[in-house]
Design a protein around this nucleic acid. Sequence first.
DNA 1: TAGATTGTTAATCGATTAACAATC
DNA 2: TAGATTGTTAATCGATTAACAATC
Lengths: 220, 220
Amino acid sequence: MKRIKVSNNVIRRMPRYLRKLDELQEGGTSRVSSFELGQQLGLTPSQIRQDFSCFGEFGQQGYGYNVAALREQIAAILGMDRGFRAILIGVGNIGHALMDNFSFRACGVELAAAFDVKENLIGTEFKGVPILPMDKLEEYLKKNEVAIAVLAVPKEAALKVTEVLTENGVEAIWNFTNMELTEPNSPILVENVHFSDSLLALSYFVSERMDENAAKPAQE
Amino acid sequence: MKRIKVSNNVIRRMPRYLRKLDELQEGGTSRVSSFELGQQLGLTPSQIRQDFSCFGEFGQQGYGYNVAALREQIAAILGMDRGFRAILIGVGNIGHALMDNFSFRACGVELAAAFDVKENLIGTEFKGVPILPMDKLEEYLKKNEVAIAVLAVPKEAALKVTEVLTENGVEAIWNFTNMELTEPNSPILVENVHFSDSLLALSYFVSERMDENAAKPAQE
DNA sequence: TAGATTGTTAATCGATTAACAATC
DNA sequence: TAGATTGTTAATCGATTAACAATC
């Protein structure tokens, strides 16, 4: 697979392509052109072909793309076939919601264990995932190679846990705390899920539209 | 406030500015220059000044920006002072996690009610927010002006609920379901929170880095 | 005042779109 | 084969960065 430098914009579109291809496949579509895909995603055919060409040649002239084959290529690009092991730190509301509703498997990620401090949770398991005591985290990391740590602890605990994760070779943190974890010289990758940023952007768009409507003279 | 067309990139940076300013304010900093802000956020001073200039003139030559004043300006830009009313549809894991952990108030949004079908939840309230029966949703919307609906129902129910929301004048949906709700000609705004897109992007970056490290000859 | 830093205009850079030869 | 659609090169567009006069 080609590995040229790919812009962030392209990478953020790849999961969208994947979702659309999954949907097409479910609907029984086996073939799709960049034109059709563009229509369904609100993108130009040019952009779609440019995006794919960052990684290789997945189509066929005069035919388009085979949905199943393209889907597998994109899955591979995103690392879904690498069997990354993840652990969840913090089985509070969000942590529990992720364990219950979110399919790590569908992203090609194996959720191997969860950690918490709450006595009543420790030793139990949920959907086959054991909940271990927080003070066994370091030991666990030394014994098991963990690619991704899902951080869903209270704000106060976030920095301490981040340190343990960083020191024990975890590659990346999927961060559900509201803390900014990114240290200037830290080697650990961080992907933030900032709910408030998302809601505030929406709030902006609502405000903007209301202002526009207010500015217009009343119709009819 | 100026309302020229502002690019999506700029809008997505505004909540980050807000968070950083809150942090500075908590730390007792009352004044900040675009240079300092840039350093802390990994942006150029130019970009920061350009971003702000989309909305007005908030600084002072030779001084910089007053942290508290700038914070308020940005809050206003994002619509945080408009008192938007929100309702939550679906008090499952994610819905419950949002009610418990997420501060709508901090985003200037009032969570006025929640809706669910589960008999044991209906009639109760959580942190002062009443949980009402789903079949009273339409009636509620006709009586109360709702700006934002937080959609956290199971996939199967998403489209039906979206229809009710759209028909009853809700401005926007904050979408936690994995469904793509955006109809081509729908007047309702949709902001998607796609956990899987976020995790897959992270998975890409981890893969990329592993490939890079594997390509390098072993050091030492 | 002199120094600092803004707001804004101009220059650069990168991303998107268009065009088209290659080819299934 | 003729028609369709890719992959890629060139053109355009928009976003970021640099520069600087204005001014606190």
